[in-house]
Design a protein around this nucleic acid. Structure first.
Length: 512
RNA sequence: GGUCCGUUCGUCUAGGGGUUAGGACACCAGAUUUUCAUUCUGGUAACACGGGUUCGAUUCCCGUACGGACUACCA
């Protein structure tokens, strides 16, 4: 069997969108599964849209989620260069070949002339206002001008483009791996521009030429390319590359969560979730967009989530590592319909992956979080916190945000709990408990804390359950949280005593 | 407008001529947890519509509706 060669070919016009990551992932999985090659090609044939930093961003994003590139920009390879701007001469040569063979032609029409043509057709009630087999004969191009005139215009240095001469009557068919046979009549395809007046190729030419030269076997890309795919097939035909033509697979789109339409940055902002893998600061506006990484998502969780948007293994298993995805992936299990983006499911995946981490892994993550708060803390303690917090968090940062009380005594107390649970009985127990705790010689363990507390309540003849909330309140300021005894073990006896004392003082007035 | 693509619970989806139409997220309820979260158990909830074909259609075919993509010298 032929070696599988796939490519991810983004355009560096800004940050890589989450949908792009999914496209890259599917390509990557197919490559890995078949021991093939994953290629990164940068398609920046439009200089006006080029954004500095976008290319580096793309590469960093792919690296972060664990999609490794075998060949292409950044790593090199036998078909270099992999940046389309550096392959200008190649495209020119192929465009010339089509001209020579009469399959393409020069067109000299100005923008105004093109507009005028569309207006004219529109006014005449023609649905299809295209530059095509009919209209091209009324325009200024090498088909309508004499050979001598064409030569003159070319020599005068006037701007021109090269267009493909699409046949009038022909049925173009393409067998999409996801959608099956797609038929299009050539009459519905326009004479697309192959070479722009600035000497750069359009996507269509560059894409086909590169895929052919780079021996690409599978083109997996977004559905937005489906309408132009027949045109690409035609190009392969014109070049005589039909036998080398890659398989096409047009992926369903990622849709916005509410309403309809393609998922956009605007929707993401509106709904409050990231759309880019990494933070992205727009060099034009200076605006910062938060990325999944910075929002606290684990790369493996994001990947797993994305993999399931449009694909599924056909079993009930949902948690897949990259290796497992590689095993299970198959193009024929990709769905046809667009998938609405549901951030809640992404959060669930993140939760699952967070839980699967060891105390040590999670403890270290907490230490990083603490470092940014300028808090130094022992790993052994951080691991204990990780252990009690694990099942309560969705994001790594919740370790800090929901566990502040481990590091700072509460400054405020939940009023609802105060009203309900803070009373004289509780104060009595707490004061006695504090005294007992301070008498301890050893470090306070959870078990020890519990027996001391039970001793105190037994002596005073008050039910332990009645004052537990008050104790929690005094230690954390809130009415909910992880196991209270463990909290005491982690913060230590002196801190326990200090906080109880402080709470009794602060809340005294409120009882009366 | 035109061309192309699509349509199973709110969402991601499985399934496929005869099923109690399955799972997951979310949601709701109960149990456990003296709290909260977790966990467990249970529950609400879907084949867009109309015609065919067929003994039988959610499944196949055709329409309609709805949605989407494309319709640039952008990718």
């Amino acid at each position: 069997m032929k070696e599988v060669r796939v490519r991810f070919a983004p355009s560096p016009t800004g940050a890589l969108h989450i949908g792009g990551i999914r496209t890259a992932l599917y390509n990557f999985l197919l490559a890995r599964q078949n021991k093939g090659t994953m290629i990164l090609r940068i398609e920046e044939t439009d200089q006006t849209r080029y954004v500095p930093g976008a290319e580096a961003y793309i590469m960093e994003s792919l690296a972060w989620v664990g999609i490794t590139i075998d060949e292409g920009v950044g790593v090199g390879g036998p078909y270099a260069p992999y940046r389309q701007s550096e392959r200008k001469d190649i495209y020119k040569q192929y465009a010339q070949q089509l001209i020579d063979e009469g399959k393409a032609y020069y067109a000299f029409d100005t923008e105004q002339e093109l507009d005028a043509m569309r207006e004219r057709l529109k006014a005449a009630g023609v649905d299809n206002q295209q530059y095509n087999s009919i209209t091209r004969m009324q325009m200024r191009n090498s088909l309508t001008l004499s050979e001598k005139e064409v030569k003159e215009v070319l020599q005068s240095g006037a701007p021109y483009v090269i267009r493909l001469k699409v046949p009038k009557k022909e049925e173009i068919r393409l067998n999409d791996l996801i959608r099956g046979w797609v038929l299009v009549h050539a009459a519905q395809i326009d004479d697309k521009v192959l070479m722009k007046s600035d000497g750069m190729p359009t996507y269509h030419l560059a894409n086909v030429v590169d895929d052919y030269l780079m021996k690409i076997t599978h083109v997996i890309r977004g559905e937005e390319w489906l309408p132009s795919a027949p045109f690409h097939v035609l190009l392969y035909k014109y070049f005589g590359w039909e036998n080398e033509m890659p398989h096409f697979a047009h992926l369903p789109l990622l849709l916005k969560p509410d309403g309809n339409g393609k998922l956009s940055k605007r929707d993401a902002d509106k709904m409050g979730f990231p759309i880019f893998p990494l933070n992205w600061k727009d060099p034009q506006s200076g605006e910062l967009a938060i990325g999944y990484r910075e929002a606290g998502y684990l790369p493996e969780a994001l990947l797993n989530f994305l993999a399931f948007l449009g694909w599924n293994p056909g079993t009930t298993q949902e948690l897949f590592s990259m290796d497992e995805l590689t095993q299970a992936f198959s193009i024929d299990r990709i769905g046809k319909a667009g998938a609405k983006f549901d951030i809640q499911k992404a959060q669930w995946f993140n939760q699952q992956y967070l839980r699967a981490k060891t105390d040590e892994e999670l403890g270290k993550i907490l230490l990083d979080l603490l470092a940014s708060q300028k808090i130094e803390y022992p790993l052994a303690q951080a691991m204990k916190i990780a252990n009690v917090m694990r099942d309560r968090i969705t994001f790594a940062r919740d370790l800090w945000e929901q566990g502040r009380f481990f590091f700072h005594a509460p400054t405020e107390f939940d009023q609802g709990v105060v009203n309900k649970r803070w009373n004289e009985e509780a104060v009595k127990v707490l004061a006695a408990f504090k005294d007992e705790v301070l008498k301890e010689n050893d470090e306070l363990t959870a078990d020890r804390a519990k027996s001391i507390l039970e001793g105190v309540t037994a002596t005073l003849g008050i039910g332990t359950g009645k004052i537990l909330q008050a104790l929690r309140l005094s230690l954390t300021g809130a009415g909910g949280g992880p196991d209270l005894m463990m909290i005491m073990e982690i913060i230590g006896k002196n801190e326990v005593a200090k906080r109880i004392t402080h709470a009794i003082q602060t809340l005294k007035m409120k009882v009366a």
